[in-house]
Design a protein around this nucleic acid. Structure first.
Ligand SMILES: NC(=O)c1ccc[n+]([C@@H]2O[C@H](COP(=O)([O-])OP(=O)(O)OC[C@H]3O[C@@H](n4cnc5c(N)ncnc54)[C@H](O)[C@@H]3O)[C@@H](O)[C@H]2O)c1
Ligand SMILES: NC(=O)c1ccc[n+]([C@@H]2O[C@H](COP(=O)([O-])OP(=O)(O)OC[C@H]3O[C@@H](n4cnc5c(N)ncnc54)[C@H](O)[C@@H]3O)[C@@H](O)[C@H]2O)c1
Lengths: 264, 264
DNA sequence: CTGACTTTGTGCACACGTTCACAAGCGGTA
DNA sequence: TACCGCTTGTGAACGTGTGCACAAAGTCAG
């Protein structure tokens, strides 16, 4: 699966994870599998943890000391049971009868997501999208400083975008090493994407975020995620089309769960 | 739950169930299918169909008349069995012993995805990202003409971006109606997102693609998908962190399910 | 026409993810 | 200290998605 796997995004087969298990509790254990003591956190849960983290940051700035799973769940737009289960993958940091301490939860989620260290990002392809990414101020603040930009266009080399001068793609290996780039973002035209990907991999980058609508081939040890806007639009289009056969529109609004209870 | 459901992306529970009721009365099963010829296509499959469509388009331009599920699967980066199952959701258009006729498959997938009709797109928030989206030439060619742009900044109103003059957000209802906008894209700062969303909904837009890192509240009949780059980066970060405990790198490649056939 | 070969379509088993429901555990109160 | 109400953490049921393996169905050669 590794080899031909497409870049998975939203959903993903659980990735085998081997996080340390601090709990000395006599777990039944006995995973039939080899020595995999891996306490796999489902990929879907990882993505949600990132969302919870953002919500928690907002709560903290707002002065909240603790939150219940219900409050957090509503704010994150998920089921509270799912939220608790997600949090349980990283340990037991809640207090029964009270909830979770915001600061503690933030710290633990950041630890699990590996946000305790900075991850330098390199953007390749400084066109429409590359410019937007380079200028975006939301990444550095969250531990992802954009520290290198690459393009092949001579007119762009040396020009600073978002404060960082663009380097030539041929210098990618040297620059990535110097700035300890750990995440590469591909924003080149589709035909150039695989080539750029190969160069990023050769430069030692093991995580890639791909905006080009192509399926990248990478070695097993490289993780790829893709953002495909055309697919997003087409999925929305599908839902529009699906509406055509409306299922009893009249009664629908009736049974319609009230949107309410937004409150709390 | 409908109200609080987060925007699902990759995966999505159909979330059909009603709110919780203390009574043990089990909700009646969903209509087992009255005369519903609608055979629910899994959301994950829909997203993949969009990918297949793109690959098929490439094959067609390249002159291919037919493809086997194996070829298509490799090109799309998925398992061939999965691909056949996905295609089976939309009908039986293959010829055993031969494969699928490219033209036919393209037509059928487009029909299912509702791409036989154009879907006008409106982008709200013409900043870094909004500019990139408006200037992107890949959407119109795929049946998603960007036909309206909105912002609140007076300096931008009337300025053409990507050939379309920016309209003021206050004109959103009128303009969306005139240009028959069916998909709204939110690219405003987070604090403005919910407000913009509400205005889009009020304007009759039923499908929204959200780039702002917030959980939008929408009525049941509106479909929201979100693209959250910070989450993508954090998921990658998680994988970087996970690599720290490397599971026997040497043997790893061995046991690794080969799944192989990367091909070659 | 027959038989060998190729590829689709799908039943089935398994794995993963979601949700329910409740015992365990904690804080507050008398 | 003992009780009570509240919330967590999780076992287990359930639903969905994935992948295998193979019969069905078609092509093609002779
Ligand atoms: N702009 C959008 O809103 C948008 C939306 C969806 C998808 N995309 C995808 O994102 C990618 C970039 O889109 P864009 O609109 O920014 O394109 P663009 O044409 O504006 O920019 C591409 C940039 O990549 C550079 N480039 C080309 N080959 C290169 C190479 N080998 N190495 C390094 N740099 C190279 C070009 O010089 C150019 O600056 C495309 O694959 C596109 O399909 C963009
Ligand atoms: N730029 C990126 O690469 C990037 C990456 C990830 C996420 N995002 C998200 O995308 C969104 C847009 O990012 P950006 O960098 O383009 O921001 P930006 O600040 O460059 O642009 C925002 C635009 O929205 C307009 N706006 C503000 N309030 C509005 C309102 N009520 N109605 C209409 N328009 C309004 C502003 O005038 C501005 O033009 C943000 O939510 C951001 O978090 C952006």
């Amino acid at each position: 699966m590794a080899a031909q796997r497409g870049q998975r995004n939203g959903v993903g087969p659980a990735a085998p994870n081997a996080a340390e298990v601090t709990a000395p509790i006599p777990r039944v254990a006995e995973v039939p599998a080899a020595r995999e003591r891996a306490r796999a956190i489902p990929e879907a849960a990882v993505a949600r943890l990132a969302v919870y983290l953002r919500v928690l940051s907002g709560l903290q700035e707002q002065g909240a000391g603790t939150v219940s799973s219900e409050e957090l769940a509503v704010a994150a737009g998920v089921n509270s049971a799912k939220l608790r289960k997600d949090l349980s993958y990283i340990g037991s940091y809640g207090t029964r009868g009270v909830g979770y301490e915001v600061a503690v939860l933030i710290e633990e989620i950041e630890r699990i997501l590996g946000l305790t260290r900075k991850h330098s990002v390199a953007v390749v392809g400084i066109g429409n999208l590359g410019h937007a990414l380079a200028n975006y101020g939301g990444f550095p603040g969250r531990g992802f400083p954009v520290s290198a930009l690459f393009d092949i266009d001579a007119d762009l080399i040396g020009v600073p975008v978002g404060g960082i001068p663009v380097d030539h793609i041929d210098d990618i290996t040297r620059v990535c090493a110097e700035r300890e780039v750990s995440i590469g973002v591909i924003a080149t035209p589709p035909p150039a994407a695989q080539g750029v990907c190969d160069r990023l991999v050769a430069a030692g980058v093991q995580c890639i975020l791909n905006f080009a609508p192509v399926v990248l081939q990478v070695p097993d040890h490289v993780e790829v995620r893709k953002v495909d806007l055309a697919v997003e639009l087409q999925v929305l289009s599908f839902h529009v089309a699906r509406r055509a056969d409306g299922p009893a529109p009249a009664s629908a609004s009736l049974n319609g769960r009230v949107d309410g209870m937004v409150v709390s």
